[in-house]
Computed example of a mutant assay.
Amino acid sequence: MTTAAVLGCSPAALAATQVEPRARLSFEERFDDDVRLAGAPGTVPVVGGATAAQPTGQLMSKVSPRIGLDVKDPSLKLESFYATDLLVRHGSGRVSLDHRGGLAVNKLLSRRLKVDVSGSIYRVTDPTSLPRESVARSNQPVLYGMSRLNVTQRMSRLVDVGAGYTFEGVKVLALGELNALPAGFVHTPYVEAWLRTTRRLSLGVEYRYQAFLFGDNMDQAHGAFGALRYRLGRHTTTTLRGGPVAFLGQDGTRGVLPRVKLELLHERGTFDAGLVLGHDLVGASGFSNTLWADYAGLTFNKHFSNRVRIYGAASFFRNGKAPNEDAFSLRVGERVSQGYALSTGLVFEVNRYVSMQAAVDRIAQVGMTEVAAGVNLNRNVAAVRLHMTAW
């Protein structure tokens, strides 16, 4: 799609095209009390097996080269990257290699028609490093991917319509009995429309279909939602979505659950923050098909100068068997998993090519019956990082 768009441009447009290669090298030293570091190789927890001994932690070194290519013109913005993470554990001598890649394209086909495409793929030995919590809740390597396509058409000064598709997939890459686990996928097409009623308020409607696949099992869900987007001020916007979701399980399970999602975004000069809260159906968890999920996340960045900033993030999840098993109970049942993550750090920009970072992370994530039984992924990480950008 991108190649065709570039070839179809006029000579004047091509003259304005900017192609910018990117290259960055990061070094990290960390202390990590990851539960997987403890015990002999035979004591690592597996489904139905015994848990490992309590971790004592060890120092690690990580080297992360990253390359990318950006392409820009008046109607196109393309960003791509590929990165590897080489992690050396000094105490045990173990070495692991992870891979990450991503692509994002924003294309204006006309003054009123816009297309957004994005995708990313991860092959990681540490599931807690993935961009979505509760994915493959175990201590096993994971292959994870996600993508999104959205087309937006401005019908008039007040009305926008859009259609899109999102994809998510995960496969646990493990030995022994876990190797029998199939890959899990979620396919989500949707259509939506927005009406700007005032300068601050927009109202929307959305229909969404979900297909959850896990091996030979396929669950489905249909949802109809209303939406409200309100600009609280010049720099703060809130969006609220809600409505019923009808769940149709292949095993005959039926049910209706509410979908609620609240987003709050603040962007102003030296400070930006985001908040998200919600309840929905999710899939691609690695060990089962469809789950209900409660989730919450908070992020912020504070710039003290052009060189110094601090950041922080906090997140929480809780999920269980779809459509509603223990969903509205405060107790943690046998088939309910939950966890949280906390992160904060300080970044110092030496110059446009070099930056330094100090960070502390706390992760608490516990898998229950349908995942790796007894696996406790609680961990604490303290790290210092050096980032060097070539161009």
Rank of each mutant, 00 (worst) to 15 (best):
F185R: 09
L158S: 03
N106C: 10
D126K: 02
R148E: 06
V117C: 13
H187S: 14
L87D: 10
T152V: 14
P131K: 15
P189L: 01
A163I: 03
L113Q: 08
A163H: 03
H90W: 12
N179I: 14
K114I: 12
V161P: 06
R89P: 00
L178F: 12
M146C: 11
V117E: 05
V191G: 14
R132L: 08
V135S: 01
A180H: 01
T128M: 07
R94M: 09
A183W: 00
G119W: 00
G184A: 05
L108T: 09
Y165I: 13
A174E: 00
G169Y: 11
L113E: 03
E192P: 01
T128A: 06
N150E: 08
L108W: 02
Y82H: 13
D126S: 10
K107L: 04
A83N: 10
G164Q: 04
A136M: 12
D116R: 07
S138F: 06
E177D: 01
L181K: 00
R89Q: 12
S134K: 04
V170D: 00
G91R: 11
G101Y: 14
Y122Q: 13
D160L: 04
V159D: 14
G169F: 12
V105Q: 09
L97K: 15
Q153W: 08
E168V: 08
V172K: 00
T166M: 10
R137N: 11
R157G: 01
A136L: 05
K114R: 13
K107A: 08
G162H: 06
T128P: 14
R148G: 02
A104H: 02
Q153Y: 11
L87V: 08
L181H: 08
L103S: 10
V172Y: 00
G93N: 05
R157Q: 05
